[in-house]
Nucleic acid binder design. Structure first.
Lengths: 355, 355
DNA sequence: GTGAAAGCGCTAACAA
DNA sequence: TTGTTAGCGCTTTCAC
């Protein structure tokens, strides 16, 4: 009984007394269908419990499937993006197909090839490390939207938060708390992808420090890409045991800030008294009472929703590049001394969300 | 230039001077191909940069795509399973296609239908809450493997750790630390899915407590399914402020234990002095110095690898049900007082992994 | 061992 | 507005 009585378009056509083409038209709500016919066809589809097969559609037309490439399913920031994408797609015919880069070694290209083999209608690439040229080629073949890349003029859309502003918010806050020695935890520079968020956050950090007259105190430590690794932890320990130990640290992601928090804990440093901390992404962990990490919220769900909508626009014909940017907000918690250290109280609540 | 020069099987056949059928055979390494021919075909495929289209294959034969249904991408336990699946699939022709249940309200059935529409060759369902009958129907149509369900005789395979044993390990440890009032954080009973892990862990808790002569001290608090929600947090606070406050708590997942840890923190309780904690899954968070949560490791990667291999066996023809069970291990950390509270030292290291 | 031919379920010209 | 017809790229008998 393996799937052998699944209804096809011909069954529906027979049942409704129309041609297969008519059924196809009704499905795609294409031009040239009378109300009568639509009703009969819809009745037949329901009666036969008909569902179109994607493989057959794909061979001729669209797959109604969008590829979503995530670099890392573990960073809690990315599932929020996925939620946003799912929300935006809920009212449409489109479905997301997920690809997750299993490790840093595996190239993203392989995954993209796979999605191309499956004839997906479009691609959402989250924080890809692919070079600009490759992305241009790719987007010439398939509608593409990037999240977390500031590249321009590539034939693809981008969706970002204002990374420079986010960094400024963090530094302004730490300075307001009385800090002048503030370090920045940076991602290792990506040769292929210079327009990555870490770079813009670093620029925001630098210009904010200078604006406060603290340019001489700038201290940048590379801790990524995998700050949870032994290498990342070693970098954190080194930062905290150096002569020039900062009194505050701003991490390019929450993960990087947490690595430093963990190291501080092991070294017996009190937070925020001995060391203030702020991260980026406002991922769920930040709110845990034991963590209580001040962080920059870039509204991942909104990024996801926007990317899905923009991709569909592209699929339906838009040609000009669109670059969508959201405004980050700071969420102050105990780690920066902005709220009582034990309470984990959020003094700056997440803003109400627009569309 | 939208994808219009992609080589097809005909192009390869022409280039190699053979028939299309011959090319197809080489691809599937089917019977009846001479070495000569294979060489020429492979040369032509390489020269033309040929890649078969999945949609076209799907219409006639296999899709070489396996559906993986995850209930929750945020729980760090699940990405580990996914890693295992990816590893096992790396050497095969098969690719995973991910479906993630976007919210508790969305039924898993919708996602499964979608995968069926795409003619996937088989399904790995992680911790589904679907009824036994539905799963039987499903597995009659499509090869299916379940992770995190102890159902038997359903026409599908299952992959689990020994949940009863895992719970026993946790209770034995807490008792050895001198505790006699140990509470269990439970998942709300699932009517449709009685054979879920939480139930087996509860049974393990109960029988271990009785074995230690502590049957009268049993205390079960429902905190799931979403222990991070306000309801879950309220349950945690209630547990910790009640007259019969336990001195130790064993959570059915790490997430549930963390919710209690967070509540304890807010109430000013010291860990492990005032309250000892143990969780289940040994997810990455447990190792963070500020968290340092004792937990039961069920080797998610192994579960993932096993499920992928078993599914492929089924696809290639196995008919009998197989039920794979792994042995859990306890990883002792500061939260249970088994290691120095501040150090987060792991006294029981993760075991070396076998295939 | 190899190739010709039919057809998977659907879409998109075009004709009616 | 509707139906007819020809494929999309691949797999699969079944002759040769």
């Amino acid at each position: 009984m393996r799937d052998n009585k699944r209804a096809t378009i011909s069954d529906v056509a027979t049942q409704a007394g129309v041609s297969r083409a008519a059924v196809s038209k009704v499905m795609r709500s294409a031009y040239g269908t009378s109300d009568d016919m639509r009703k009969r066809v819809e009745g037949a589809m329901a009666a036969l419990n008909y569902r179109p097969q994607f493989a057959a559609r794909a061979l001729r037309g669209r797959t109604y499937t969008l590829g979503v490439l995530l670099p890392d399913i573990r960073n809690p920031f990315f599932p929020d993006i996925l939620d946003g994408i799912t929300q935006a797609l809920a009212d449409t015919q489109y479905q997301p197909l997920l690809g997750v880069r299993p490790s840093v070694e595996v190239t993203e290209r392989g995954l993209i090839e796979t999605m191309l083999d499956r004839k997906l209608d479009g691609l959402i690439l989250v924080a890809p490390v692919l070079g600009h040229d490759y992305l241009m080629q790719l987007s010439a073949m398939t509608p593409t939207v990037l999240i977390g890349r500031h590249d321009q003029n590539g034939g693809f859309d981008t969706v970002n938060n204002d990374d420079r502003l986010g960094a400024k918010l963090a530094i302004d806050h730490l300075v307001a708390q009385g800090h002048s020695h503030i370090a920045y935890l940076d991602l290792e520079p990506l040769k292929d992808a210079p327009f990555n968020p870490a770079r813009f956050r670093r620029q925001g950090y630098q210009s904010a420090m200078r604006a406060h007259g603290l340019g001489e105190n700038e201290l940048i430590t590379v801790i990524g890409p995998d700050s949870g690794s032994e290498r990342g932890r070693a970098a954190a320990r080194q930062l905290l045991t150096s002569k020039r130990r900062p009194t505050a640290v701003f991490g390019w992601t929450d993960e990087s800030a947490l690595t430093v928090m963990s190291a501080a804990h092991e070294l017996g440093l009190r937070i925020p008294e001995d060391l203030a901390l702020a991260g980026y992404d406002n991922s769920r962990l930040c709110a845990l009472a034991q963590i209580s990490l001040t962080s920059i919220d870039q509204d991942a769900q909104l990024l996801g929703r926007a990317s899905a909508r923009m991709l569909i626009e592209r699929i339906e014909g838009r040609r000009e590049d669109v670059h969508f940017v959201t405004a980050p907000q700071i969420v102050v918690r105990g780690s920066s001394g902005g709220a009582r250290a034990n309470g984990g109280t959020v003094t700056t609540e997440r803003r109400p969300r627009s569309a």
